[in-house]
Structures are given as structure tokens and as C-alpha cells.
Design a protein around this nucleic acid. Sequence first.
RNA 1: GGUUCCUUGGCCGAGUGGUUAGGCGCCGGUCUGCAAAACCGUUUACAGCAGUUCGAAUCUGCUAGGAACCU
Length: 297
Amino acid sequence: MKTLVIVTGPTASGKTSLAIELAEALDTEIVSADSRQLFRGLPIGTAAPTPEELARVRHHLVGVLDLHDYYSAARFEEDALAILDRIWQKSDYAVMCGGSMMYIDAITKGIDQLPTISQEIRDYCLELYEKGGLQALHEKLRQLDPVYLATADLSNHRRLVHAIEICLQAGVPYSSLRTGQAKSRPFRTVKLAINHDRQTLFDRINRRVDLMIAEGLEEEARKVYPLRHLNSLNTVGYKELFAMMDGIMDRETAIARIAKNTRVYAKKQLLWLSKDPDVKLLDPMKPLLPQALRFIN
RNA sequence: GGUUCCUUGGCCGAGUGGUUAGGCGCCGGUCUGCAAAACCGUUUACAGCAGUUCGAAUCUGCUAGGAACCU
């Protein structure tokens, strides 16, 4: 039986180095599960593995996308599974490292098969929202998929648009395509997270933000500033600096906002973890690797 | 010592007699194709005391703290 060891947890908790230690101990490779490290050109702001770290263990899905590229949890599922298949040919273990919880779920539980949306339909739905607002989306869904509408988050235009897109593309209601069934995988998973208390984690985050600034995050952001409207740059650490460059906030405020938004992000991750009964928590006060290996075996 | 003005929830900030301002933060939550995204819910204060009034954050008096000016 193959084993996928998933090192997840909130941002700044020390996932990267633990994953490397694990991969070395298990003599295998790392598949990143980080929706932002996927992109090229953002090493500082996304706290991507350093060149030295990348040299120690082979990493997958780090810095492989152009900032313009479209990506999604479903693509991640597909890509990561393909990479894992290759790793299984030479090892019984693989390490996954990342805090994009939806990506982790995509790998462990799978995502239902949905059609790829054509540009036409995408544009149509966007226009529907821009012209008619949430009301128009509600009405459209009332016709196309009242079942989904009944449980939908009526204020969240993104999800509503998405549902309409799928209904139109598939020709059947979105809700009929949602199975709610977890897919079975040809490997077992062990999910690990480093369990810092909240105050410690927040201190680590604050310190890391200062470090990022010292390492040149501003310069990194300035380089991609012209592309700031891309989704890949709708990211903590960049959007605040873009606001600073636009003169909307001063430097001090921008940096404080980065730290604050990173904390908010971490809380979201913590929430997700707390609801996942499969996560094994590691005590950061003790050596991590032995604890992790104990859970694996 | 005198005169005038100010005092709203963690912060900012409206509100001059009669529903919860609002924003930010904090905290909590949602999540099956953009997820470091998008979205939702809480947090109920008027410096203190005594009055006026059916009813006061809003009016009056006193007390406390602060600001400006005068001597």
C-alpha cells in the first residue's frame, strides 16, 4: 500500500522544512499543494521553498505556472494524481506539502466531474451579474437549478455564477452533478499539521512578514505590478503593496495589513483543520520528524 | 485663577428628544473548478452623578479628565 504523507497546516507553521525532512527520511519527492507557489515569480511573497531547499528534494508544482494561467482545485487534483502515479513507481511514499485546504481535499476526497466552461458562457454569466447583480443570478438559478439555489449562499456571486455556468455548459442542473461522494484512492493518506498555539503562530507570521519585506518583497511586487488584476496576484502580500503603489495606503499601513491578512488567512486554515478529523497534530515543542514518522507507521 | 470648547463600544466616526448609524479590528462561521479567493454572522457604546421629560447619547446642573486662549 502506498502512503501519501500530507504536511498541511496554517501558513508560517513550518511545513516546508518538515516536508523536506520527511521526504529525505522516506527517500521520496514532494508535491506542493499551494495555490500560489504554483506560480512563477512570487518566491518571496509565497514563502516558496528556496533554491537550496529545492536542491535537497525534488519538488513538484512549484513555480510551474505563468501568472496568466488559469488554475483550479480540479486541475490540481488531476495534476497531482498524475505526479503521484509517477512517484509510486519508485517509492512507497510521497510527501505533499501545502496549506491550500481545498487542494488537499481535492486530493484526498476528489472533486466531482464537471464540464469545462466555454469562454462564451463565462462572459455571458459575468455580464449577467454585472448588469443584473445578485438578483439576476438568483432568477437565473431559479429557472436552471432551484435545488442548488435553495442551499446556495445568496450573497456570494462567485459561487452563484459558477453554478449557472455549469448548468448552462452541462445542460443539466449543477446540483445533479454534485455527488457528495468521496473518490477512492489507490493510496492511504496521513495528514499532519504542526500545532502551534495561536499566539505563537501569530508571532511567527508577524516575524515572517518583516523578513519578507527585508528580503525584497516590495521589489518582487513591483515587478508584477502591471499584472496586478490577475487572479494569481489577488494574494496576500501583493495586493496590499499594490494598494501602496497606487497611493491608497502608506507603506507602514500596507505592511501592517499584510501581517493582519496573513493572520486572517491562517485562522481560516486553522478552522478548516479543526473540522478535519483526519489531521494528526504535531507538538512543535518536540522534534517533529519522529512524531511524524510515528504517525506514518 | 478666569473664559470657551471637548469627552460615544478595542480604534475611527455619525447622530442636537422617540427603530440597530457606519467603517475597521477582534471573535465565530460557510466552502466540491479562480480558494492566500469569494461570502456570512457576532461584538450593542454614549466619562460619572443628579435632574427635566411619557421618553435623553441628544436638554439642565454638578463632578472628573482633556484642549485652546486670558491673567
